[in-house]
């Protein structure tokens, strides 16, 4: 461990702002793209699901109509 205390760790020898800015930006961007990809995945699956349900409903309605 290069730092004696937690506050020293966050200060980064006076460069804290720049170091944490870079790490923070990196984490935010990567997390953002990760989460958005995850969400798109869920959305596509939901779309397909609702499409299947819709077709099933139409089929059922047709059968009842007959």
């Amino acid at each position: 461990m290069q730092f004696n205390s937690l506050s020293e760790f966050f200060a980064m020898g006076g460069y804290g702002f720049y170091v944490w800015l870079s790490y923070g930006a990196c984490a935010v961007i990567l997390l953002g793209i990760f989460i958005s990809s995850k969400r798109t995945h869920g959305k596509i699956l939901d779309d397909v699901k609702s499409q299947i349900a819709r077709e099933a409903r139409i089929k059922k309605a047709k059968e009842q109509g007959l």
Partner: peptide
């Protein structure tokens, strides 16, 4: 000093 730690990303 510590500013070089940015290198790791």
């Amino acid at each position: 000093k510590d500013s070089y730690r940015i290198i790791f990303i």
